[in-house]
Each structure stands twice: as structure tokens, then as C-alpha cells.
Amino acid sequence: MINFDYIRTSTAKAAVEAKAKSASSQFIAGGTNLVDLMKKGVTSPEKLIDINSLPLKQITADAKGVLIGALALNSEVAENAIIKTKYPLLAQAINAGASAQLRNMATVGGNMMQRTRCSYFYDITMPCNKREPGSGCGALQGQNRMHAVFGTSEKCIAVHPSDMCVALAALDATVHITGAKGDRKILFTDFHRLPGDTPELDNNLSTGPGGQKGELITGIHIPANSFTKFHYLKIRDRSSYAFALVSVAVALEISGNTITNAKLAMGGVAHKPWRLSAVEKFVTGKTATKETFAAAANMAMEGAAGFGQNNFKIKMGKAAVAEALLQASQKI
């Protein structure tokens, strides 16, 4: 690791300004992903701007929803009384990720900014278009068991590793952003990108003079909802502390035995949290039966394509969607 410069900032404005001044600078919050990437030589910023003193830790709720500060720790969000009672899907998803220690360090904003765990991205001796555009995709014909089955490109088949983001995508969250040009909001589902021809870009933060991450996430807003039935299902290679092979976030409203409202998103299948809008439409108005869920599961995986080792994700995805819907529908 190079011996970078390190500064602390206490306002969002100062942070954004500091970022604009230095081409090779990055914000650091929890550091759980950034420090790791720096150790591996994947990224070597010359300056770190510590944003931990920014006043962005609050979780505040009103009738319209809840605003979670970008610097709220993952563990604080998962333990927060409002989140636990009104947005339990989010708490469940957060607790399905990483470890208790990492959740005590990682922030909500940082979780969104975490980069793929693709082995080829992480190993600087291997080809990777995301890390080094033009060098090729190592995973395409290599070890791709963990990789995407939706929205891939020839350039990149990596997946976004977050669990939290899958729940946020399902819950219609909005990302609050600030930058040199002022504040703006992006729908959570529009925040992360598909790889296309520019897999080096993980998300749609503006590519200002400070590089891709010139802007700063200040918070996440989740609109109020009346979902009473929810489930976050994560299938992984060991019982805990592993990234998803496939995960599914489901939130349902059921009246009698009829589904009146549904939100679904998947993790471990794409370069971004994969919202299942068509499935939501399909199940709405239908009765909550295994047959409905099986049909929904088939629909969920339509268009999925594997690359060899990850072909199983299509079958597993179906199983996971059906099971997550079932589990959610049976919540009391």
C-alpha cells in the first residue's frame, strides 16, 4: 500500500470540495472494502478523505418513510427500532451479510459503494475489465460459479455482493446525493449500473473531476409501506459469513389469501440488485399458493443465462424465489 495522504472532513461540502481538488482521492467511511482493496493493490488512492465526522448518521422517520443517513452503521440500522418494526426486511437482509464485526464498521453508503468480489477483479495479475478496462474478462471463460446470469455483457459478468442493497431495491428506496453541483436524488434501482461497455463504472454517481465518485451519498430514503409479510432468503456455500450464491428479498401484502402488493429483488445474479418488477405484477391479485409461487419463480428466471459453472443459478434462482415467496406468505 502506498503511503497516501489522509485528511478528515466534518461537512459534506468540505468533503466534496476536497474530493474535487485531488484526482486520485477517495472518501473513506467504514473502510471495510476500501482498505481491503488497497491492500490487494486493486486501488491506490493518493489521498483518503475521512468522512466519518460528517453529520450523516441519523435515522429519522415520518409519515412518508424513513431517512437513513449514509454514515449509519449497518449494525445500527439492523438494530434500529424503526427499521426493525417498519422495515424488517432491511434488518434481515443486513444481518444476512458479512459478520457482526464488519457490520459494526460498514456504513450504509459504503455498503452501496462496495465493489464486486469477483476473483479476477481482486487479483491484479488477472485480466479484468472492471479493474483495468480493456484487459479482458477473466471470469467469462474461467471460474464463474459466483457470477451473474442477468444483465451481463461480454466485458463483465460480475455480481454486486451486497445483501442490504437487495432489500433496498425491493423497498423502492431513493438515494440522496450531494456534489459540487448541489443535491440530487436517484431511485435506488437506478443507482447501480449494468456493466455494458463500461464495467469500470459500478454506479451512476457523477464522473466529475474527482473521478467516478465525485459525488457523495448522504442518505437513503425508504417510503412508508404496509408490508406485513416479508422474507430475505440467502443461499450460500456455508451457513454464515459468505456471499450469496442467490438471494431473494420479498415483501408482500396479503388480504385474505390474495396478494395485493408485492416487491421482489434478487442478489447474486447481476451486476446490480435485480428487481423483479414483472413478477411483482404477475403475483399481484393472485392467491398465495405454491402454484402461484412456482409460476412466479419461472417468470423470475426468464432470460437468465449462465456461463458454465454458474448455470445452476437459474435453477437455484427459481427455487429461491418460490421458497422466499412461500416463507414470506407464511409470516404471521
Binding site: 476473483s119 487479483d123 495479475t125 477473466g138 474461467g142
Partner: peptide, 12 residues
């Protein structure tokens, strides 16, 4: 242990 045989290199 996973290995990418094109490079003879472990990937995990």
C-alpha cells in the same frame, strides 16, 4: 481450492 487452469492460478 479453485484453480483457473488457463493461468494455473488459484482463484480463491
Amino acid at each position: 481450492v479453485n484453480i483457473d487452469n488457463r493461468y494455473g492460478r488459484y482463484t480463491n
